[in-house]
């Protein structure tokens, strides 16, 4: 940029920085007014700088944003989650100590829930996220409010998913297929990474690496092979199911492994339901008119309040918080901002 305009842009940036927290004092305000009125280019440059400042604020409210780091280096590290977090590339994820809930719970499951005969049962409470390393080197990440049983048999690694959701990073072992069972449905993998979530009426399978086969013990028509990036919902009582190739959605749907909820143009009511999976402090939507508002962002599963605050900022909806619940959209009070 030319020296002069660089000057205008720089001055604009300075004014924005000075006003970021508090209004200017009388003297400074007068100086600003003179500068601002002097030239339409000043006004344009100021508008541009404001827009950039506002844009940078979007990085706020995500998971990391709520926990203020203790040191500068940490602050710098948290400023760069893009480079570190990367993808479903599960190895990277496993390689670093994942934040929040995962770190807090890592490794606990196996010891406390070891049952005799190589069978491991694990039940997670609401909001709990557990990493369960299995003896065959497979890693199971068990999501909130779930119940699984794992049995490592000589010729089959068998996981019964009674409730909830699990993601597996399966250790390769062609001799011993890895199979997740939900009622009569079977999801089988050799060496791969995939997630299974059980609903009342069926299961959702997400494949982040390798290949997975979905079959049914009861319905012979149910037999499909899914490769990485595919997701499918299979109902317990229906044979027809179609897999979608949606790698981004798969990544996103697996965000819970890092204690995160990812929203990408999701409806507010859907997002709320998602948060309520993880927390006892429930979010209640008081204004149905807001239900269809679309939202984007990454949040910590255990920070519904941060989410509510963000909703408040984004939609201007009033938010009320008490120990039991967070109410969004009730016009009585507009606190929580």
């Amino acid at each position: 940029m030319s020296p002069e305009a660089l000057c205008i842009d720089e001055v604009a940036a300075q004014w924005v920085a000075r006003q970021a927290d508090a209004p200017l004092g009388a003297e400074a305000q007068a100086a600003f007014d003179v500068w601002y009125a002097a030239d339409t280019r000043h006004q344009g440059a100021y508008f541009r700088a404001q827009a950039a400042w506002a844009m940078l604020g979007r990085a706020r409210v995500m998971g990391a944003g709520q926990v203020v780091p203790e040191s500068v280096t940490e602050a710098a590290a948290l400023a760069a989650p893009v480079g570190q977090t990367v993808s479903v590339t599960r190895r990277r994820w496993l390689g670093r100590v994942a934040g929040g809930a995962v770190a807090a719970c890592a490794g606990m499951g196996f010891v406390t829930h070891q049952v005799t005969g190589g069978r491991v049962a694990l039940q997670t409470g609401v909001g709990e996220l557990r990493r369960l390393p299995l003896k065959d080197q497979t890693i199971a990440s068990v999501n909130t409010d779930s119940h699984v049983e794992v049995a490592l048999k000589p010729h089959l690694r068998e996981v019964k998913l009674h409730k909830g959701e699990v993601w597996f990073d399966v250790a390769k072992d062609p001799e011993r297929p890895f199979q997740v069972q939900a009622d009569h449905l079977r999801v089988q993998a050799v060496g791969t990474a995939f997630g299974v979530r059980r609903f009342d009426n069926g299961i959702e399978v997400l494949v982040s690496e390798g290949t997975v086969r979905v079959r049914s013990e009861r319905l012979s028509e149910v037999d499909m092979t899914l490769t990485a990036g595919h997701m499918v919902f299979v109902a317990f009582d229906q044979a027809d199911a179609r897999a979608d190739f949606r790698p981004e959605s798969v990544d996103r749907a697996l965000a819970w492994r890092e204690g995160q909820i990812a929203l990408d143009n999701d409806r507010l009511d859907t997002a709320i339901a998602e948060f309520n999976r993880y927390n006892r402090q429930k979010i209640v939507l008081a204004d149905e008119a807001l239900a269809g508002e679309k939202l984007v962002g990454w949040f910590r599963t255990d920070q519904p309040e941060a989410f509510a605050r963000a909703v408040h900022e984004a939609l201007g909806a009033p938010v009320r918080v008490n120990a039991q619940q967070i109410t969004i959209g009730e016009t009585v009070s507009a606190a929580a901002g």
Partner: peptide
């Protein structure tokens, strides 16, 4: 290139115009 990484973190915004 970076946009391919799925775990960008960020703030919420309304779907239409924030």
């Amino acid at each position: 290139a970076k946009a391919l990484t799925p775990l960008a973190t960020g703030q919420v915004k309304a779907g239409h115009v924030t």
